[in-house]
Design a protein around this nucleic acid. Structure first.
Lengths: 340, 340
DNA sequence: CAGACTGCATGAAACGATTCAGAAGAGGGT
DNA sequence: ACCCTCTTCTGAATCGTTTCATGCAGTCTG
């Protein structure tokens, strides 16, 4: 049972502590015969390294943490998968922590991670990210990379996706399909993504020159049912004022809109076209396959992890970088040119 | 920068090591005045406990790991959320590891977790769960709880959901709605869940007495596109042989079926009724809201974590338990009684 | 053959927290 | 004065690993 230490391995193999350690960490410094004896002893005793002792000595662990707003959100799960690839390649371990959009839980996680002397932290902070908690980590020499947040003038790396561009792409596409009355559904606008996507759409309309209208139908959350409610309201408009297309701040809203419109006998895309955002797995599997703006989610995770590892290795000489990815529009049927 | 140790705190406050430790761990053993001086020193130096040293001394960590087959699967994310609640309440930390259905990665994770001397492991193992890796953990005194796997005669606790019952509930419901030709879509049957759900459905049909048919349309995966393909094939049957209802091994398949049938002009539920399994978030938001068998996913996670903590505390005297939860059928519109 | 070098093995010191036997001092009782 | 008890504080020992100065043979060089 339990707890065979390096010392017992040494005794068993008839060598000293240091030699066993060398076999483990610099095998080629040890004569083959000796090495084999040690390896046999290890196998026989079922010895397993004690990482706590290692870390204590090393001053830090080899694990990297990612703190996400919601483990169940497909956006984050894909980011996690991306980060995982890079971290594991580097022989480290990725642990996933869930803040659940709760500042207190976020703080508690960060405290525990700090106690564990993690090698670095990837985080999408609750709120905008000017947290003093993050500041503290940084001061303590623990690298932090912001995910899907602009760090502004801040003192850490960040990876994000250009949401303004995403909004523009969606709007340009709708304009090309001939739409001139478009609604933007989403909210709250306190979420940077929601505001940016709208700003992009508005900019595209302005650049287009033609007269045209971008009506904003704010929602209180980014959920399917919020989408349904918003759609129900749009439908009450007189036909001549009713938007011929809607651009939704995310796919959940878009799915809600699709569902509500269909229920009320409006055809998508012939009566109302829809473009969503995020390209979640179900976007393509909806009753009418949904056009959507896709973000390079795994890529985001991979890059974030790379930046972190880089910073962890170079240390003080590190120069912070801010990587911004470009989203792409995936055109499916919900935004086909209406047949009239 | 970095690394204020307990020793420096002691010097700063003019007390000994042991006193600082007491302030941290048994504050009431220390005179209030002294305690305050120590706390001030801690605040001033920005001291943070070093968990590695703590663990080294204690012999084990306070983190609990959960190893899941797929971080992106809504089933597991809910289980994680449930486990989180319990683990955090107990003042421990939950780390999520992703095996991605890959035995090698699973093994690597377990090795690292063992090196870290985690307090316990919740796991849905790749395959059936007779792994020697798990055996090793157990021998080393690290409690293991199987999630969504029957441990058979095995030497650890387990939590699971009765999939046979779930299959029965779905089938009984369809029989009640008057269906006599039903298809079961799902696969591969090597997945215990797929086989059990079918077994339950078959049992319900047999118990019903009446003649009736349960046709099996095996799929190679449990995805939306697999569902579409299977549905496309069903549609080619002569109307008199075509099933009037399908029971799908999970919701993704069900959504695929719904989509394909709709595309081909068949009405759900009037021409074909559908019952899915898992009750994922999108089940209720589908074009036709989907009837589905719901598993108590968070509950599963909570209970698993409770069993684990219990075992970690009681130690050798622990008696393993196997908890089986009952699923429930959520009836929506995809299985409404057909109007004819 | 002295001196330099190489290859291999050694074991004490350090990392930082916890624990525990016991010292020091205060107060009470006789 | 003496013995007890109680509270409060002390500091050495300990956990398991890594590192590094050191030692010991043997080999090569001139």
């Amino acid at each position: 049972m339990s707890a065979a230490s390096i010392k017992e391995v040494a005794r068993h193999a008839g060598v000293s502590l240091g030699t066993v350690s060398n076999v483990l960490n610099r095998p080629n410094r040890v004569a083959p015969a000796t090495r084999q004896r040690v390896l046999d002893a290890i196998a026989e005793l079922g010895y397993v390294r004690n990482d706590s002792a290692r870390q204590l000595r090393a001053g830090h662990s080899r694990t990297i943490a990612i703190v996400v707003l919601d483990v169940a959100n497909p956006f984050f799960t894909d980011v996690v998968r991306g980060a995982e690839q890079v971290v594991e390649e580097a022989g480290a371990m990725l642990v996933v922590c869930n803040s659940g959009e709760d500042r207190a839980r976020e703080r508690r996680h960060l405290e525990l991670l700090e106690e564990q002397r993690v090698r670095g932290v990837l985080i999408t902070p609750v709120g905008h990210g000017g947290q003093p908690d993050l500041e503290r980590l940084h001061n303590r020499g623990i690298p932090v990379v912001l995910v899907d947040r602009e760090s502004g003038r801040a003192n850490c790396c960040s990876v994000a996706v250009d949401d303004v561009l995403g909004g523009r792409l969606a709007m340009e596409h709708l304009l090309e399909q001939g739409h001139r009355r478009v609604a933007y559904l989403g909210g709250p606008f306190s979420i940077p993504q929601v505001a940016d996507r709208h700003a992009g759409a508005a900019a595209a309309l302005a650049a287009h020159g033609d007269t045209g209208e971008l009506r904003v139908a704010p929602t209180d959350t980014l959920t399917v049912s919020a989408g349904r409610r918003a759609a129900a309201e749009l439908v009450t408009l007189p036909v001549r004022q009713r938007p011929t297309a809607v651009f939704c701040a995310n796919d959940l809203i878009a799915l809600g809109v699709l569902q509500e419109l269909t229920t009320r006998g409006l055809r998508v895309p012939d009566d109302v076209a829809i473009v969503g955002y995020d390209d979640i797995e179900f976007a393509g599997a909806a009753a009418v396959p949904l056009s959507s703006v896709r973000q390079p989610r795994e890529q985001l995770g991979r890059t974030a992890a790379q930046l972190l590892l880089e910073e962890a290795e170079t240390g003080a000489t590190h120069r912070h970088r801010h990587v911004v990815f470009q989203p792409e529009l995936v055109v499916r049927h919900s935004s086909d040119r209406p047949r009239r």
